[in-house]
Amino acid sequence: MTQAAAALARIRLEALGCERCPLYRNATQTVFGEGPVPASVMLVGEQPGDREDIEGHPFVGPAGRVLDKALAAAGFDRTDVYVTNAVKHFKNEPRGKRRLHKRLTAGEIDVCKVWLESEIKLVRPKAIVALGASAARALLGRPAGIEALRGKTLAFGEAQSLFVTIHPSLLLRMPDRASREEGFERFVQDLARVVSAIRSSETRKASRRVTLRNSAQPAGFSVR
């Protein structure tokens, strides 16, 4: 285990007892991020859903299955991606045996940001993908319109890129099959842009390394 992975494991344990806001009261447990450390790509959702809250893992419910399908279609292997949420507890309102999902407030997003910032620092992703408005709000520090930012590559941090797209649960709420299929294809395109951006970045870095190596060779010496 690397030092960064060990540090993140300690932070995960600390987060399990988080009571920084009242959301823990109706939640089963903290749902922390999962994936390789470091990872080239970090996906940031909004909050755990009912299934995630019960199982303790991010994106394992219906929206997670949509996400897995879209990642595969875009050329990702989910095991290579770090997946987390902006808020680590499931915000819900108990109604008999059911728990109804509730929208996050800006204050709840902001108070939970300490965990997300730690994840970004230790995972060191080259690209971060905000899935939904709450995730974009957590990362940008301000309200953000999804449609205004989709398809754009935003500078984030010192050497990272930020991409904004929908949360996969939106596709499940679309009223008809045609809308869902169209929405899914566009979602895949958003994720494919991330793959393309990372590959382009890696190609540029490899090219710079070759240029630097060649420039360091004595005159009359060639690399074969």
Rank of each mutant, 00 (worst) to 15 (best):
R99E: 06
R199K: 13
L43M: 03
I198T: 09
H89L: 11
T84E: 15
S161H: 04
V81S: 15
K91N: 11
A127E: 06
L154K: 02
L116P: 09
N214F: 04
G75T: 06
F76G: 10
N92W: 09
E185Q: 07
K69V: 11
A178W: 04
R103K: 10
A216D: 07
G96D: 01
R20K: 02
D176V: 01
T105A: 08
D110F: 07
P168C: 09
P218Q: 09
L131Y: 01
E182Q: 02
D50F: 14
T105R: 06
T211G: 08
L67R: 03
I109Y: 07
E52Q: 12
L43K: 14
S134H: 10
G220I: 14
R150V: 11
A27F: 02
N85A: 09
S179I: 00
E117T: 13
M42Q: 00
P125S: 03
G17I: 01
A133G: 05
Q29M: 02
S215F: 05
N26T: 03
F221Y: 02
K97C: 03
K121H: 06
E52W: 13
S201D: 15
T165I: 07
P175V: 09
I11D: 00
G157K: 10
A155F: 11
V60W: 06
E117L: 14
R193I: 11
A4Y: 00
R124T: 14
A63C: 09
K113D: 11
R65I: 05
V31N: 00
T79R: 15
P36Q: 12
H101Q: 05
R193Q: 12
R25M: 03
A72D: 05
S118K: 10
R199C: 10
N26A: 06
W115L: 12
V60S: 13
R199F: 11
R204E: 10
K121C: 15
L212F: 02
C18G: 07
R208T: 06
R65N: 14
D53M: 11
A74V: 08
G107S: 12
E19R: 13
F163Y: 10
E52G: 08
L149C: 14
K102C: 01
H89Y: 08
R78Q: 14
A178V: 09
P168N: 07
A5D: 00
C21R: 01
G157A: 09
Q47P: 08
A178K: 08
